[in-house]
């Protein structure tokens, strides 16, 4: 069960939910930048939510599958083709053995996730299959995909979930279809999970040095738009825009941090940390982007405007809880629907 990389796309990496518990060794989390979409792509393939996927950036890869597979693509909208035929995103899709799977250029947004039933397989490094390009850690030393790479598909659902539909879809496959066809006739409404509108501000929790900004700068921070700089990646998103200034210079030494931290380096241009950020940082801290809005940061592309709105820790956590409930309900629904549809053809009368 291998997948051959014909074209790698712009920046395509293996990502699961990242490596946890190694910050004290200087090892960051990495993992999917848009985690809810990773979970949904996995659910659409009957995988546990944390199975390993391909994270695709702006321009997707072209892949050849040597065995039939059940795949799903979710995230930023892109043309998805199997042997040249357009297929839906946000839906389970059947790929026949030997077919070419092509993920094109995104029309908006920045990141999509390709999941395969059984997950992408690779030897985990410190408990995760995520590629940390910046730290040089993970499968292939964290190196993004190149043409000629061969990826392995897991042959069975990865452990960690009891609610995965059995692989009865193999029986469907043996029942004579060789043409690509959607496994189901439905697709998800992506809107709650990918909006693609950049006007809505990101919620910002107060950082340690927020009140050390000049009153004008504090006002500017929450009233004027910034623009995402092209020199941005999974380590950090650089912002250009109105100048921000401290009331007095801030001296600090390196302190722990994580994705979502908004720092202001001496250059005066803020940096919002992404999943491959270092585990500590020594620049003054304006704030922390609410976890519930990190997926929206992940979907920003260079040139997009970016605004902030102040948010309390309680409100941020409340919004995160609400999203997790919605995500749990959605993935449970997908699992139930897949189980129903995939089991039905094989169930004869008792």
């Amino acid at each position: 069960m291998t997948i051959e990389v014909l074209k790698p796309g712009l920046l395509t990496t293996l990502q699961d939910i990242g490596r946890l518990g190694f910050a004290h060794l200087g090892v960051g989390r990495a993992g999917a930048f848009d985690e809810p979409v990773l979970c949904i792509a996995n659910a659409l393939c009957g995988n546990p939510h944390d199975a390993c996927t391909l994270e695709v950036t702006l321009l997707g890869p072209t892949l050849r599958l040597n065995a039939a597979a059940w795949v799903a693509v979710a995230g930023a909208p892109l043309p998805l083709r199997i042997d040249g035929l357009e297929q839906p995103m946000w839906a389970p899709v059947h790929v026949p053995a030997g077919a070419t799977l092509e993920l094109g250029a995104m029309r908006s947004g920045c990141r999509s996730y390709l999941a395969v039933h059984g997950g992408f397989d690779a030897t985990p490094v410190l408990g995760s299959r995520s590629m940390d390009v910046n730290a040089g850690l993970g499968p292939n030393g964290g190196r993004p995909l190149r043409a000629g790479d061969a990826l392995q598909m897991g042959s069975a659902p990865q452990p960690g979930s009891g609610s995965v539909p059995r692989t009865d879809w193999r029986i469907r496959q043996n029942a004579g279809e060789s043409e690509p066809d959607p496994i189901s006739k439905w697709r998800l409404d992506p809107r709650p999970w990918f909006r693609g509108d950049t006007n809505q501000p990101l919620r910002l929790l107060p950082g340690k040095h927020l009140d050390r900004l000049t009153p004008t700068s504090r006002n500017t921070l929450f009233s004027e738009p910034f623009v995402m700089h092209a020199n941005s990646n999974r380590v950090g998103v650089r912002l250009v825009g109105p100048a921000l200034a401290w009331m007095s210079p801030i001296e600090m030494v390196s302190e722990g941090c994580g994705p979502g931290l908004l720092q202001l380096p001496p250059s005066g241009e803020p940096i919002a940390f992404g999943p491959e950020c270092p585990v500590s940082g020594g620049y003054p801290r304006i704030g922390q982007i609410a976890a519930v809005d990190i997926p929206r940061l992940a979907q920003m592309r260079p040139g997009d405007p970016l605004r902030f709105t102040p948010c309390s820790f309680d409100d941020a956590l409340g919004a995160l809880r609400e999203r997790e409930r919605a995500l749990d309900a959605l993935t449970a629904n997908i699992a139930a629907r897949l189980a129903h549809e995939l089991h039905r053809p094989q169930r004869g009368p008792r």
Partner: peptide
């Protein structure tokens, strides 16, 4: 502390 890169 360890930081900057894994194991530094």
């Amino acid at each position: 502390m360890l930081g900057f890169a894994p194991g530094f």
